[in-house]
Simulated assay, not measured.
Amino acid sequence: MTVLVTGASRGIGAKIAERFATVGMNIVIHYGSSHEAANEVARTCMELGARVLTVSADLRKGEEILRMRSKLADHGLFPDILVNNAGIARYGMLSDVTEEEWDEVIDVNLKGVFLFSQIFMPYMVSQRYGRIINVSSIWGISGASCEVAYSAAKGGVNAFTKALAKELAPSGVTVNAVAPGAVHTDMMQGFSPEEIRQLEEEIPAGRLATADEISSLVYFLALPESGYITGQIISPNGGWLT
């Protein structure tokens, strides 16, 4: 079995790649520009016993993803599981968001999911088995002040997930989304220690999630025995949103 994880050079994506590596799957690590970080994740996955390939592509450009698919085919790697994890956030009032910033957030978080799914799902359909798992966000469900573009993009990912699940269900391919609450990753670096403490006080569980906890849920959705779960937006958020 082969799993392709986008944005796997750090954070949740890296932990997802490492989780699948523990069971000996072939791992394809996609990254944008963080070459050395991706190689470090690859080394960890190989130490866990996995066969690993790292590939770089601008996920906003279909031609680059098509070249990436050709490279994978040259190595005999055809993803049975696609984890659309790559994402970026921009913080600020909507009145201060530029058109370029809006386009970048929508393109990376939503267009990338569209392109990767469209390009890699035909193989899954042809073998009548596959898993597409989109990493969304709690803000795609509830919205977040000062993160309108990000919330809109993740809300689009959630709707995309539900719609594509209906298209692919007859072909044995499931499509689900994991929409975490606050997670200890690099994306939290913009928050001060006081802001982190305030977040933790708002969360009934009293803490932020770990990337390992999110990767475990992604792994569960990829299992063969999870084949009746599709079109779902599952939000591990410590009771923050119910």
Rank of each mutant, 00 (worst) to 15 (best):
L4M: 13
L4F: 11
G7F: 09
A8S: 13
G11D: 03
G13S: 07
A14H: 06
K15C: 12
A17L: 11
A21S: 09
T22H: 06
G24N: 03
M25P: 00
H30W: 00
Y31F: 14
E36H: 09
N39A: 05
R43C: 04
T44F: 08
M46C: 10
E47G: 15
L48M: 12
A50S: 15
V52Q: 00
V52A: 04
V55P: 05
S56Y: 03
A57I: 08
D58T: 13
L59W: 06
R60G: 15
I65P: 05
R67S: 15
M68F: 03
A73V: 08
L77Q: 04
F78A: 11
F78P: 03
P79V: 03
N84I: 05
Y91L: 15
G92I: 14
M93Q: 04
S95E: 09
V97P: 07
V97H: 01
V97L: 15
I106C: 09
D107M: 08
V113F: 01
L115P: 10
Y123M: 04
R128I: 09
R131K: 14
N134D: 07
S136W: 02
G140M: 02
S142Y: 00
G143Q: 04
G156Y: 02
V157K: 00
F160S: 06
T161S: 02
T161D: 01
K166S: 05
A169D: 01
P170M: 08
G172A: 10
P180M: 12
P180C: 12
A182I: 14
T185K: 12
M187H: 07
G190F: 04
F191I: 06
S192V: 04
P193V: 14
E195L: 11
I196E: 01
I196V: 15
Q198D: 09
E202K: 06
I203V: 15
I203D: 05
P204N: 08
A205I: 13
T210M: 08
D212S: 11
S216C: 06
L217D: 01
L217M: 10
Y219N: 00
L223F: 00
L223V: 02
P224F: 07
E225C: 02
E225G: 04
S226P: 13
G227V: 05
W240C: 01
T242E: 00
